[in-house]
Simulated assay, not measured.
Amino acid sequence: MVQFRTRNGLAALIGTVAVLGAAGTALAEDRDPAYATARAAGQVGEQRDGYLGVVPGAPATVSAMVKDLNNRRRAIYTEKAAGKSTIEEYAFTTACRLILQTAPGEKYQGLDGSWKTRGAGAPERDPKCP
């Protein structure tokens, strides 16, 4: 669980994410057809920590792809968080947004850590999400 240093730190982080255009930031996986296929097949999902997770039963090739994509995400988080927040805080805030952006039928990590399939309603999100 991410603990923010101060309420002002959380507010600053939220502002930073907005200023950096996080809502429009295209992560590398958005352009990867293998990722799109695995996501549509329910083999990968958004975790609460800002990284992708492999849903049990997915092929080994999906695990390798997710590892590579998570390394790319970490590099982005490291760059964007520099001097403004911790990598973990930035990743958490991004996770809140990415989980909210899942489409019906896509997987995400629920509050209890289990994999949930997004329905027509809003996904289950951490109460600390902005």
Rank of each mutant, 00 (worst) to 15 (best):
residue 20 L to K: 15
residue 32 D to T: 06
residue 23 A to N: 10
residue 38 A to Y: 06
residue 71 N to Q: 13
residue 114 S to Q: 11
residue 25 T to L: 11
residue 39 R to C: 11
residue 70 N to R: 14
residue 60 A to T: 13
residue 70 N to V: 15
residue 77 Y to P: 05
residue 25 T to E: 02
residue 83 G to V: 04
residue 26 A to Y: 01
residue 44 V to T: 13
residue 63 S to A: 14
residue 50 G to H: 11
residue 47 Q to Y: 00
residue 31 R to S: 11
residue 101 Q to W: 06
residue 100 L to Q: 14
residue 42 G to A: 08
residue 21 G to F: 05
residue 89 E to L: 00
residue 25 T to A: 03
residue 130 P to Y: 15
residue 85 S to T: 07
residue 105 G to H: 04
residue 128 K to S: 14
residue 78 T to D: 10
residue 127 P to Y: 10
residue 81 A to G: 07
residue 91 A to N: 12
residue 112 D to G: 10
residue 66 V to L: 04
residue 59 P to L: 04
residue 37 T to K: 14
residue 107 K to H: 11
residue 3 Q to P: 00
residue 113 G to A: 09
residue 79 E to K: 14
residue 49 D to T: 11
residue 102 T to R: 03
residue 118 R to V: 06
residue 4 F to G: 02
residue 121 G to L: 10
residue 114 S to Y: 04
residue 73 R to C: 03
residue 62 V to T: 12
residue 48 R to L: 12
residue 118 R to Q: 10
residue 60 A to I: 02
residue 83 G to C: 06
residue 74 R to T: 12
residue 25 T to N: 03
residue 3 Q to W: 08
residue 28 A to Q: 12
residue 90 Y to G: 04
residue 69 L to P: 02
residue 36 A to G: 07
residue 52 L to R: 10
residue 59 P to K: 07
residue 83 G to D: 04
residue 19 V to D: 13
residue 78 T to L: 13
residue 125 R to L: 15
residue 91 A to L: 07
residue 126 D to Y: 08
residue 104 P to D: 01
residue 115 W to C: 02
residue 124 E to R: 03
residue 113 G to P: 04
residue 58 A to G: 07
residue 4 F to K: 02
residue 52 L to D: 01
residue 79 E to F: 08
residue 30 D to Q: 12
residue 98 L to P: 01
residue 101 Q to S: 06
residue 13 L to A: 13
residue 8 N to Y: 05
residue 79 E to R: 14
residue 114 S to P: 03
residue 124 E to L: 01
residue 41 A to V: 03
residue 115 W to P: 08
residue 112 D to I: 00
residue 97 R to L: 05
residue 130 P to G: 15
residue 17 V to F: 09
residue 68 D to A: 15
residue 109 Q to R: 02
residue 121 G to S: 13
residue 59 P to V: 00
residue 53 G to P: 02
residue 90 Y to H: 12
residue 59 P to H: 05
residue 64 A to D: 13
residue 81 A to H: 09
residue 19 V to I: 00
residue 56 P to H: 02
residue 47 Q to L: 12
residue 2 V to L: 15
residue 122 A to M: 07
residue 10 L to N: 05
residue 52 L to C: 01
residue 83 G to M: 04
residue 96 C to I: 06
residue 32 D to R: 04
residue 19 V to K: 15
residue 108 Y to S: 08
residue 61 T to S: 14
residue 35 Y to G: 06
residue 107 K to L: 06
residue 98 L to M: 14
residue 86 T to W: 10
residue 97 R to E: 09
residue 37 T to C: 00
residue 33 P to R: 11
residue 18 A to E: 15
residue 14 I to G: 11
residue 40 A to Q: 07
residue 60 A to G: 11
residue 112 D to K: 10
residue 129 C to D: 10
residue 56 P to R: 07
residue 86 T to E: 11
residue 18 A to M: 08
residue 34 A to G: 04
residue 34 A to D: 13
residue 41 A to C: 01
residue 113 G to D: 09
residue 51 Y to K: 04
residue 75 A to Q: 14
residue 19 V to Y: 11
